[in-house]
């Protein structure tokens, strides 16, 4: 029998920016099982992006214990390339290479995966890489724009390039940092559907951060509320109460009213 291990385990994780007074992350315990679909909600500055960066293995200088995909993360140095390829992130600001085409941007997702680590430098990728890139571009519906430079695309199209790059990576954990904040409701729904279906068909864990809880709750099974770096609730989406959201956003409403 295969020993059961969660995808993600965090214990007593704390983080604050150098010189900063308040904790950006202050998490006592968080466990995520393989294949779970989770929304991470909270207002701007609640620590959602920082938590995703930690799970993506690129946050340095935190304390505590974090295990992702069976590997204890180091708070002091970057994670190995193989591990990094198993965790994919859709960036909030897309983080695209502006002067490269859609195809070339999506292919970046293959850099950690390809068997041709050195040959890739002269543009030689495997057939498997090419297939993954084409599939990802088709999944987000950009096949007609594959040879366009990304700096000529609209905000919504650029967002979908970011999603396709992450899908091409074929990660076991798929993280998405505010993937719909720049989109109109119809495009937002398309992007969330694509993320959900791709994660489900590959058995990957999906964690989507958002400050629009109403939009994402239809696409996930579990919702985690984050406020000032702390987890204030963590429950199945069906058990979510209006009080949960008021607790999370209440101060904002009060702030606007004042």
């Amino acid at each position: 029998m295969v020993e059961h291990t969660p995808n993600i385990q965090l214990f007593d994780v704390r983080f604050s920016y150098p010189g900063g007074h308040s904790q950006v992350l202050d998490i006592d315990k968080l466990t995520v099982e393989p294949g779970e679909q989770i929304a991470l909600i909270g207002s701007t500055g609640a620590g959602k992006s920082t938590l995703l960066k930690l799970l993506d293995g690129r946050l340095l200088g935190w304390s505590g214990r974090a295990e992702v995909l069976g590997r204890a993360l180091s708070p002091r140095r970057p994670q190995p390339r193989r591990w990094q390829a198993d965790v994919g992130l859709v960036f909030q600001d897309f983080s695209l290479i502006e002067r490269a085409t859609v195809f070339d941007n999506v292919r970046i997702g293959r850099l950690g995966r390809t068997e041709h680590r050195h040959l890739s430098l002269i543009g030689r990728f495997t057939d498997r890489d090419a297939l993954a890139v084409e599939t990802a571009i088709r999944d987000v519906g950009l096949e007609d724009l594959a040879e366009q430079r990304v700096d000529r695309l609209s905000g919504g199209q650029r967002q979908r390039v970011g999603v396709a790059r992450c899908l091409a990576q074929e990660p076991r954990i798929l993280l998405a940092d505010e993937p719909v904040s720049n989109l109109d409701p119809a495009s937002a729904e398309t992007v969330l559907c694509v993320l959900k279906e791709c994660a489900a068909s590959r058995g990957a864990t999906l964690i989507i951060s958002s400050h629009q809880p109403k939009m994402v709750r239809e696409f996930v099974e579990r919702v985690i509320g984050l406020k000032q770096g702390r987890i204030v609730f963590d429950r199945p989406v069906g058990a979510l109460t209006p009080g949960d959201l008021t607790g999370l956003y209440g101060w904002q409403v009060a702030d606007v009213a004042a």
């Binding site: 990094q84 390829a85 983080s95 680590r117 890739s120």
Partner: peptide
Amino acid sequence: RSLESLDSAGATWLQKMRF
């Protein structure tokens, strides 16, 4: 910042420079 996505994808230093 535009190189962060390559770090996230697990690119080597040379791949980061090239792509």
